[in-house]
Nucleic acid binder design. Sequence first.
DNA 1: CAGGGTTGTAATCGGCTGATAACCATCCGG
DNA 2: CCGGATGGTTATCAGCCGATTACAACCCTG
Lengths: 174, 174
Amino acid sequence: MTAGERRVAIVDAALQEFSEHGFEKATTDAVARRAGISQPYVIRLFGSKRAVFEAALDRAFTAVETAFSDAAAAAGGGDPLRAMGAAYGRLLEDRVLLMMLLQAFAASGDDRVKAVVRERMSRMHARVAELSGATPDRVREFFAMGMLLNVVAALELPELLGGPDWADRMCEAL
Amino acid sequence: MTAGERRVAIVDAALQEFSEHGFEKATTDAVARRAGISQPYVIRLFGSKRAVFEAALDRAFTAVETAFSDAAAAAGGGDPLRAMGAAYGRLLEDRVLLMMLLQAFAASGDDRVKAVVRERMSRMHARVAELSGATPDRVREFFAMGMLLNVVAALELPELLGGPDWADRMCEAL
DNA sequence: CAGGGTTGTAATCGGCTGATAACCATCCGG
DNA sequence: CCGGATGGTTATCAGCCGATTACAACCCTG
């Protein structure tokens, strides 16, 4: 397997580990085992644990951006913002991407992570505003609901549906 | 100083450390130094690092609940939900409480943390619905905007006001 | 088939950190 | 003044984890 393919596999594994455990608790050894290789090789291909984290974060943001672009393109005559919201809801299903974003927000105490997140969020905001043509108020509400859904995903509230009604109420936004 | 007073001081220190660094990266030694005592004493008074975290989390949730109750009580004839939103904005100013909540969400990969957060969020949701008398839709939007503000606080976007316009747009919700 | 680049591993190190154990100081009631 | 309860500390351990080093297998290409 080429180093490039290996890198992809490592980012796959890293996305799982970091999204579940966060930057600090996730170990490069767990990433390596998940990718089927040895821990030192992970470090060698990326240089450091932080670099692996940033690669995984980059993929997560890129996936969301792609989903938004595709949804807007496929919206046709409908409301692009609603189409993007539905696309985000679909991303929610596997929980991994969204948890990764939440972990990145939480890791923003670190200045480098914060800089990356700021830059990507800035891009995403501009892109959503451009694709949707919506008012600033609606765009803000769109992002607010997205953040709520991140937390809903983190707490695994969908599995509570049919339970306490507050979970229902929050989830029906989809 | 009595053990009870010491516990309060430790929770104060823990709130700072955990909110900034998250559960994993924050150290009991840093908490101890901030509280002006030795690291083993922190462990002895709380039993474990996790217990310190949970105590700090409890205080954060309680502070928010108190702020909401006070705001609703002081709302008079005005809109209680708007008053609570303003109160949340005021809490945002010191960033610590909100960051603590965000860290708790991120730490929800841990089942015990997740259980605590679910329970407290459930209580808070019920309380807000009761105090405000608002429709489920409005209550959900209220929480969504709160989650957005958490992220805004984490990324320290207010310091960007006057910079890229997306930060302005998100912050003007206050 | 020589040999260098590529892909990978085993062994190990070194620092950090939560937790434990043992000990010490101070205060106060009888 | 004695002795236990209370409020602490120092010293130390034991495990984890990221990173480094040195080495090994493989595969092309000339």
